[in-house]
Amino acid sequence: MFQNNREGLALALPAAIFTALFFLLPVGFLLSEAFKVDGMWSMQGYFDFAIKPLNQTVFLRTLKLGFLVALTSAIIGYACAFSIVNLEGKSRGRVFGLVVLPLMISPVARTYAWIVILGRTGIVNDAILGLGLSDTPIRILFTETAVFLGLLQLFLPLMIISLVSAMENLPKDVIPAARVLGANWLQVFTKVILPLTKDGLVMGGTLVFTGSLTAYITPAILGGSKVLMLETLLYQRVNVANDFVSAGIIATILIIMSFSANLLLKRIAKARS
């Protein structure tokens, strides 16, 4: 550790000043617009926003989908991460590479495929009809299910990555040891794996939840105007109604939601240990 702190400050400041000036300041201005009504500081914009039924629906839907995507990806993520960690060296690297891969691909491409997959004549409906699960094709596009699937595919890799790196730090013999001592799998998971990987879960959960809240393409293409989420509502307010007050309000809500999710997960993780 060097002692010349002024030198350190000089090295770190340009980055901070750049971000503050060209990023945070404009964003701050925009957010502050939501607190102004006719040039006066006021919370009125928030009250007006909150009482509209559509806004309530969209807020709850966004919260619900974000939660469901995070929960589902945690469940799949644990199963998958555990399987990956159990693989031998080389195939482990390969599988991990394949999990990372989708993150590198344009979300436009990733969402686009689902239009074809989830359509009436798409392979999902072919499978449903073929297996006799339904007599008529099921409508999936432009439903919450479509948005859910799109978001899950988009963000599951983030959860798997977080959990894999947490599990790699798990001592090799704790699970066999717990088994020998008579713990069943559920106990092994809740008493051993979960506590030891909770940092990964907090990290992954935050990333997936925040990502789902702020995704634009997926709800826009797969949900359309019938399944509005906060992000698509924001775009609509600005683009259709020139309504920058609502835009600022929605942005503030999104930021607060992301922050609280992170804090909440950290709190839960702490409480458990």
Partner: peptide, 8 residues
Amino acid sequence: DDIVTFYN
């Protein structure tokens, strides 16, 4: 509910 979507 019976309308597939409101297209843009």
